[in-house]
Amino acid sequence: MKDTINILVVDDEDNILEVIKAYLEKDKFKIYTATDGEEAIRIFKEENIKLIVLDLMLPKISGEEVCRKIRAVSDVPIIMLTAKIEEDDKIEGLAMGADDYLTKPFSVRELVERVRALLRRAYRDQNPLADYLVFNDGDLEIDVTKMKVKKRTKEIDITPYEFKVLLALLTNPGQVFTREQLVKKAFGIEYEGFDRTVDSYIKNIRHKIEDDTKNPKYINTIYGVGYKFTGSKS
């Protein structure tokens, strides 16, 4: 995992945020911080976040509710921080979708090790991507870190969900993904109606990056199976 990895740290105590941020930045992670639940959700929607360190006691929207909202659309790894020490509280936190749990006060070095381990487990099946990708001699450019896409050097308007689907295909160029696999890889969830949803995302992406949607050179349909990315990397 040598490329930049975005981590969101959410806590209403500035001193805790700064310490965690400093330690994680030593490991070359890119850190986003939020001091309340609303800000956390906004950042998650706007950035390509790979892991969240989430305090439960937050203003505006609680950490529990933030976790539920994110879990409704993504399986991004979440480490919960809390002052609650009872076993039932820990079980409840894990049940709502957290992947790991640390009780305050905690060792920041231990947190960093848990972040590393969780990232390894969560993304071990993904091929690493460069921060910036160019295809077909500059026809298509993708800034992975900033979640931006350019067509013939002109930035196009792409939604976070469309970008996640495109990125899922890019992790294994040439590999055919079923709709179920794309949902799992892009969003970490499986839900009723996913066939129509994925098809809609693919249709929108094609209209934005293809010269001829009937003869695509980037996202090809494998009839009866799914989709694959076929752009030539420059």
Rank of each mutant, 00 (worst) to 15 (best):
Y218I: 03
P105E: 04
L56M: 13
S234C: 13
D137H: 15
D14N: 09
P59A: 14
E110T: 09
R179I: 15
I5K: 07
S234K: 13
D137N: 15
I52M: 09
E86G: 11
L58K: 06
Y132T: 08
E180H: 09
N220D: 11
D212Y: 13
L8I: 07
N15I: 12
I16N: 05
K28F: 10
A117F: 06
N136T: 07
Y101S: 02
A117R: 12
E141N: 12
A122S: 15
R121L: 08
A95L: 10
R121E: 08
T82V: 02
A22P: 00
E92I: 00
T145M: 15
A117L: 12
D99R: 05
E110W: 01
M57G: 03
T35R: 12
Y101M: 06
Y23K: 13
K26I: 15
G174C: 09
I222E: 14
N204S: 14
E18R: 12
R116P: 00
M57N: 10
I85Q: 09
D36V: 09
V198E: 03
E13V: 08
L119Y: 02
I189V: 15
R206D: 11
E92F: 00
F135P: 01
V225N: 10
R179T: 10
K203F: 14
M80K: 01
G193Q: 06
K151Y: 12
L119N: 03
K90V: 04
Y223D: 13
Y201I: 07
I142S: 08
N6M: 08
K154L: 10
E18V: 07
Y23Q: 14
T4G: 07
D88C: 01
R179G: 14
T145P: 03
S200D: 08
T230S: 13
P173W: 08
D139E: 09
A22V: 05
S234A: 12
D199I: 01
V165K: 03
L24H: 10
